[in-house]
Simulated assay, not measured.
Amino acid sequence: MIRPATPADVPVIHALVRELAEYEKALGEAVATEEQLREALFGERPAAYAHMAVDDVTGEPVGFALWFLNFSTWRGVHGIYLEDLYVRPEARGGGHGRALLEELARLCVERGYQRLEWSVLDWNEPAIGFYRALGALPQDEWTVFRLTDEALTELGTARRSGEPVA
């Protein structure tokens, strides 16, 4: 069963984010707090949305999808960017990951969005195989760039106030 997340789900979403980070060998980078997630998902101006995969028998959450809207200037409409998709190892193979993606695809179709996009680590062969089986195509001609930490701060503070932008 797939359902939209509620504020009561924030602790389990936080735990699932940390499990995903551990799986991706980057637990030290997962510094978001429950309060930050609560504000991002359920604050006055939500920045992201989440859906929960729930075990049909126990009713316990076994996975989640956290996503936000993006926009394509080429297509002129919104799309969904899937930030995180995670299903606990003991629940994998039960259709939860597919059901989460089906729900996001349904939202795209219903709302007129024309893209559902996400990134996957190059070494995550099980995920890559799963996505390919759904008909998703890798965008190999694009390379993701990211500014964080000191590099972001340095660039963001490089221009003095009042100077024209080059």
Rank of each mutant, 00 (worst) to 15 (best):
F130Q: 07
A127V: 08
W118A: 06
W118T: 12
P138D: 05
L121R: 09
L107T: 14
A133K: 13
A136S: 04
W118R: 12
A136G: 09
P138G: 10
D122M: 13
E125V: 15
F130A: 07
L107P: 05
L107K: 14
W123I: 06
F130L: 11
G129D: 14
V109S: 05
V109P: 02
A136L: 10
I128W: 02
D122P: 12
A133N: 13
R132W: 03
D122A: 15
F130M: 09
A133M: 05
L107G: 11
R115N: 01
E110L: 02
G112S: 00
W118H: 09
I128M: 06
W118S: 10
P138R: 07
V120P: 15
A133F: 03
R111V: 03
R115K: 15
D122S: 15
R132F: 00
Q114C: 06
I128K: 10
L116G: 03
N124L: 08
F130T: 02
L121C: 03
G129A: 15
G112T: 02
G129I: 10
Y131K: 04
E117W: 04
E117T: 13
L121H: 14
D122N: 14
W118G: 02
L121S: 10
R115Q: 11
G135L: 06
A127W: 03
Q114H: 10
L116E: 03
G129T: 14
L121Y: 15
C108A: 07
L107R: 14
I128S: 01
